[in-house]
Design a protein around this nucleic acid. Sequence first.
DNA 1: TTGTAAGCGTTATCAA
DNA 2: TTGATAACGCTTACAA
Lengths: 322, 322
Amino acid sequence: MTSKDLARTLGVSQTTVSLVMAGKWRGRISAKMAKKVLDAADDLGYRLNLSARNLRLGRTGTVMLVVPSLTNPHFADVHSGAARVGADHGIGVIVYPLQGEDGKGPFPSPRQAIDGVLACAVSAGSIDVLRDGVAMIALDSDPDAGICSVTMDVGAGMRSAVDHLVRLGHREILHVRAERDAWTFAQRTEAFGRRLGAHRRVRGRSLAVPFDGARARERILARLRDDSSVTAVICDDDNLAACAYSAAHGLGLSIPGDLSVIGFDDLPLASLMVPALTTVRLPAHELGRLGMEQFLRNDTVTAKTVMPVEFVERASVGPPRR
Amino acid sequence: MTSKDLARTLGVSQTTVSLVMAGKWRGRISAKMAKKVLDAADDLGYRLNLSARNLRLGRTGTVMLVVPSLTNPHFADVHSGAARVGADHGIGVIVYPLQGEDGKGPFPSPRQAIDGVLACAVSAGSIDVLRDGVAMIALDSDPDAGICSVTMDVGAGMRSAVDHLVRLGHREILHVRAERDAWTFAQRTEAFGRRLGAHRRVRGRSLAVPFDGARARERILARLRDDSSVTAVICDDDNLAACAYSAAHGLGLSIPGDLSVIGFDDLPLASLMVPALTTVRLPAHELGRLGMEQFLRNDTVTAKTVMPVEFVERASVGPPRR
DNA sequence: TTGTAAGCGTTATCAA
DNA sequence: TTGATAACGCTTACAA
């Protein structure tokens, strides 16, 4: 059932149908006629063909939020922020995860007609792949990739975390870093190294772990067992912090008595953990919001926005015991 | 830059360009010509217009997975399963969350051209709204809505959980149920009530909580404090179980000594919790897989598939102490 | 207030 | 091996 069919059935023109269906008939079509069309459409189950409309209009009213995976509530917040703003401008946001739950590599890109891409926390390589043709905003990704970007000051977050631990007397700090090629994690690593260099008598070490709960826990456990001098860990995200909790428990270490733990993100999970997790809150919702606003602004200049992060103190950090 | 422009620039016909771009030139276009076209396309930054292609082809090669929210890793698995199968058939899967992180209600549906909808764990009302025109498969939703469905036997899962607790001697069991209008949760509630009726001298009670970590924790804590006879809780999902852990900790109750806890889903989180969570594993990946297969099968008959669930015993359940 | 007709960029049919 | 041409279903000047 097309608009042409509908028009013919009713004995009116396609224009009338189109105008009514698009809701712009006021002052152009009589109310009576409009109702007739609406009723008939409903009756006959007429559905607008979006491909046709999009082709005609030259836009789709949809942007795609590309995320590394769906497993992290962090991205739910980013979507929420972007969708909220988009909704006010008639733009829908769909989500496309670059890889599946099992990390088995990217699915092929959907044959999707979209107006733009918001790429969140993806690697530089992925940015290049995604960026052909459509407008693209990089979120929490390399701001030097030559495209418009919105980032969070994760480096500052890491510095806060390190300083906080050092202030409490920690001298042996482990950075549990995500084994994933993305700017946002590289930033944490770099900031960690740099900041430790600034503190005398503080030793930092680093452990790369996969984004897989069980395996991450295992690696952290092995490391903490082998290197018992560590008194604090900073994890690249709250999920990894949960793994650290589990590993500590497996070794009979109490938190924060034997081990202080700091995460990144401030997921809902963080305040539920026992003890509640000290973490670097990343403004995910705002990230999505600003990203969408940037897209709507349609800047040809490559604006770079950096958002502050917040160090949230809870109960998982204390002075070192040993 | 359209295919027409590209053709004119090269002095060839649109057909040639189209054939080459679609990769079906073998045996029809000379290799030399094909290369020329490919190079020029790359050079001039030619991009296929998907709206046009979709209009012409009458399909988009994309299905939309509708989920209640993005906050639950469970849905990541569903997507993963669907996308894996879709990929083998040239179908991409995009994700559309019905509501934002804050639960502030649905965003307007994206103006999206899609071939079908896989609706996961949505309410009956949403099914009706989504199901106009496009092919639709209901996942973990009411199988009696008159459309093709794939469900998991959550009722059996609930029965396993109840039986397990009763067998250990529990007589006062609390069902912490999700305050969300969805078939999957209604099933749990119904099975809980029915199964408790089958056991003599066992008392069940029910507590509805929102899908919001902090508020859920609060409500559970209040309930456990006011009703100290409860020795076990069954939570509608693992996240709620985490809330129960936190609430128990707040009251100084040990798990499983003072309180046994059972969840649903078997999220990665479950085995990381301390103690590791006993839970009803829902085969999310399989759900997505079967859903997509059902879509590809394009049955006009409304097939109904029910998948078994698995009760996973870990460390959060023990005999009641008091 | 309603109708006519052109055109969006692609693919498929058929002819050369 | 390549090219001309007709749809696909919709929106919107412009004409009536």
